[in-house]
Design a protein around this nucleic acid. Sequence first.
DNA 1: GCGGTACCTGTACTTCGGTCCAATAGCCGG
DNA 2: CCGGCTATTGGACCGAAGTACAGGTACCGC
Lengths: 207, 207
Amino acid sequence: MTESIHCFVSRHPDLLPRWREAFPSAVAGADAKVSPHGTPCMIWARLEPGAAPVSAIERVRGEFGAIPVVVLSDQPSDEEALSCFAAGARGYCNTHSAAELLRRIADVVLQGGLWIGESLMQRLLQGTARVPMPAPSWAPRDWAALLTEREREVAAAVADGASNKEIARQLGITERTIKAHTGAIFEKLGVRDRLQLSLVVHGRQPN
Amino acid sequence: MTESIHCFVSRHPDLLPRWREAFPSAVAGADAKVSPHGTPCMIWARLEPGAAPVSAIERVRGEFGAIPVVVLSDQPSDEEALSCFAAGARGYCNTHSAAELLRRIADVVLQGGLWIGESLMQRLLQGTARVPMPAPSWAPRDWAALLTEREREVAAAVADGASNKEIARQLGITERTIKAHTGAIFEKLGVRDRLQLSLVVHGRQPN
DNA sequence: GCGGTACCTGTACTTCGGTCCAATAGCCGG
DNA sequence: CCGGCTATTGGACCGAAGTACAGGTACCGC
């Protein structure tokens, strides 16, 4: 594994001692687009008091693409945390958290987890619970009847627009295996590609 | 690290090979109150299809107290995941996830993180601006309003499962021009490929 | 006329999707 | 125990899809 670079973005050009203690090789992001040290593995964005969290995070995410962002807040609150997660943050904690905690958070986030305060869980759920769910999609089962359990999962993911790579990550298997499944699905359902599969799954006939 | 005992609770008395592969020292919980192997570090609760998620989790949590619970679902859905988190689960994933993924989830949860499914993650991140476009946040069916006449024809054909070559023949223009149109459509509608375009045209949200 | 838009096409390139070969492993029914 | 099904993966290959860069024509309004 290559050296993991933690990039701290804040208005101040220098790193807090805490951060340096947690990640000796950390670099300061400031507004620099790309650090000369390589591509960072994750971004720590310190929220300036008074600044809008959302725009700040989106700016950072716009600069750094898919790199996970953890927000550091000087005065954490549930409301602020919610805004951050809604804006795409993968974690939220106090700016002055202990080095040990920062490292734990980094572990969690880099593994694909979410770091969220315990008190926040209920409210976060309420915030997402009203997201409209588009489809019943399990009602029409004729297509599903022809497939195995695993193939159904893959078919559903494909039908929702996921790429092979995404499905592989989601199911924890290789992209190669996804291709094997999709191939089997296509043959069983008599379609030629993923788009036609999507149509069948959603109850339409191709062409 | 001390020997971590993973306890798998399901209606079946035996462990899935996957689980044993992930945690060779795993034990089956069934309805046994306390295993003879000591106190487990975490509980994996397999959700039986048709059973109410909430009551199942609460029962498990009642038995095992403060030990973090990760829910395994045979047919994961966002609704189900939300119910589980509302009931106090710390993680949610597919029953048949790969051993490697299970171990990652265990890491995250044992460190205090939260593991939400990939699709739920997307839903959380959704509603945020994507990098190229400011996210039109379309009402259903205004997709046509954003496109030119020609682009509408191409979009409709793509959404019905036609290939670029077929559309080119149908419209009497070259495949290259179809690509130009599809590229413009993708950008205007904020989708990344023809399958997601198909979903938008048919009134669904990708992922 | 000039700027803007829509429409059309070319070359070259990268990435993704799909298929063919083949292989390992576990589970299950006969 | 063996054959069949399922799940998984590898390598190689090819074509489709998508992007980048670079044009061309035509129409329309100021």
